[in-house]
Amino acid sequence: MSSILYCIAQFTPKEGKFDALFERLKALEPDTLREEGCLRYRVTKHIENPFAPGESMPIVFNEAWASVEYFERHCQRKEIVEFFEQECLSPDGMVAAYNVTAYRDE
Rank of each mutant, 00 (worst) to 15 (best):
S3T: 08
S3F: 02
I4M: 11
I4E: 03
L5A: 06
L5M: 08
Y6T: 14
Y6N: 04
Y6C: 13
I8K: 03
I8S: 02
A9E: 07
Q10V: 12
F11W: 05
K14A: 10
K14D: 01
E15W: 10
K17F: 02
K17I: 09
D19S: 06
D19P: 04
A20E: 08
L21T: 03
L21A: 01
L21S: 01
E23R: 13
L25P: 12
K26H: 12
A27I: 02
E29M: 08
E29L: 14
E29V: 11
P30E: 10
D31K: 13
D31H: 13
D31G: 13
T32L: 08
L33G: 06
E35G: 15
E36D: 14
E36T: 02
L39I: 08
L39T: 04
R40Q: 08
R40Y: 11
Y41I: 08
Y41R: 09
Y41P: 00
V43F: 00
V43T: 10
T44Q: 13
K45S: 12
E48A: 12
E48T: 13
E48L: 14
N49M: 15
N49D: 12
P50K: 04
P50M: 15
P50Y: 15
F51I: 05
F51R: 07
A52S: 14
A52W: 06
A52F: 07
A52Q: 10
P53W: 09
P53F: 15
P53M: 12
P53Y: 04
G54A: 07
G54F: 02
E55G: 08
S56G: 08
M57F: 03
P58E: 12
P58K: 15
P58M: 07
V60C: 12
F61K: 07
F61N: 09
N62R: 01
W65P: 04
S67G: 07
V68R: 15
V68E: 04
V68G: 14
E69W: 09
E69A: 12
Y70F: 05
F71N: 00
F71T: 00
E72Y: 02
E72K: 13
C75H: 02
R77I: 06
R77A: 07
K78L: 07
K78N: 09
E79W: 03
I80P: 15
V81R: 05
V81H: 10
F84W: 02
F84Q: 00
E85T: 06
Q86R: 13
Q86E: 11
E87R: 15
E87Y: 02
E87T: 11
C88Y: 01
S90T: 15
P91D: 12
D92Y: 00
D92C: 06
G93C: 15
G93I: 00
V95F: 04
A96F: 04
A96W: 09
A97T: 05
Y98E: 11
Y98D: 04
N99Y: 08
N99P: 01
V100F: 02
V100M: 03
T101I: 03
A102Q: 02
Y103Q: 04
D105E: 09
E106H: 05
E106I: 01
E106C: 05
